[in-house]
Design a protein around this nucleic acid. Structure first.
Lengths: 145, 145
DNA sequence: ACCTCAATGAGAACGGGTATCATTATCGTC
DNA sequence: GACGATAATGATACCCGTTCTCATTGAGGT
């Protein structure tokens, strides 16, 4: 499944631009291995750590392209840095719980929440392209500590 | 009601710090006049436009203090700048619809949405302190254009 | 192998937000 | 009302994530 997303995206980008560079492939492969959102820095470090001399600009360029194609989602948790995560080809998506203490980020899904969001959007004359939801507070571990 | 929030906050800050400066008062008064979120720049420009030589740092300091006291809410729409809006003393709060085309931001409320959020938080062991929701898309005007 | 041009990487530039620090102004005290 | 202690303020330097610039590289077609 992880491989599926990665392969799907690489094929898509190739057919889209006609070219295929090394930097983009590394970014896509890295994102394919993540289960939740990561920052551009983390991607940069991760890829570099694996031995590729990739530039920051290329990371942002790759992410921008992926975003435009709807293959990746920008996640902004309000800490001044953007994070990115792959979009499940089956349309599933999740939101985020953020711990104010330890900074941990974990995903969650909720059907009733999605339905409520649909309803709001519909009743407002808005053509909604995306929605973001995140809850912040103290996670179980930090409450115990 | 606008005056109510402003007065309430000024009194609260005064009792909290024991001091009352000009910059903070101007920021609070400005926020009291807004119906939806504004950026720190907008506050700075707005107050300066009214003739007060206020510094950017003071705006951020005031906002930080108001945030800590729970009198103001940070709103991050993912465009790289934070916005702020006053918190209704009665506990009401709203979320935001953002138009990707014209950048317009408008508030909305939805009870079912709030209930769904409560439920998610409760079932996760999280002590949730705040939640953010925003929908982005094309507003009625931009769809017509 | 060669040519064309998109893709890349290094580093400069940009901008929101924060930290620093000398100056100002508020409040309690006399 | 003047005075002293000290919080608040404003100008500016700084930090860091992101974007821009541009010379170089390398992929794909011929």
């Amino acid at each position: 499944m992880t491989e599926t997303w990665t392969d799907h995206v690489l094929a898509r980008m190739r057919s889209e631009t006609g070219r295929s560079g090394n930097a983009r492939r590394r970014v896509v492969e890295f994102l394919g291995r993540q289960d939740c959102c990561v920052s551009a820095q983390e991607i940069h470090d991760g890829v570099r750590g694996a031995g590729s001399r990739i530039g920051v600009a290329s990371v942002y360029r790759a992410l921008e392209g992926l975003d435009e194609l709807g293959l990746v989602q920008r996640v902004d948790l309000g800490d001044g840095t953007s994070r990115f995560e792959r979009i499940d080809p089956r349309g599933d998506h999740h939101h985020h719980l953020v711990c104010d203490d330890c900074g941990k980020v974990e995903p969650f899904e909720d059907l009733a929440l999605e339905e409520a969001l649909e309803r709001v959007a519909g009743g407002r004359g808005y053509e909604v392209a995306a929605h973001d939801v995140f809850l912040r507070g103290a996670c179980g571990d930090c409450r115990a500590a």
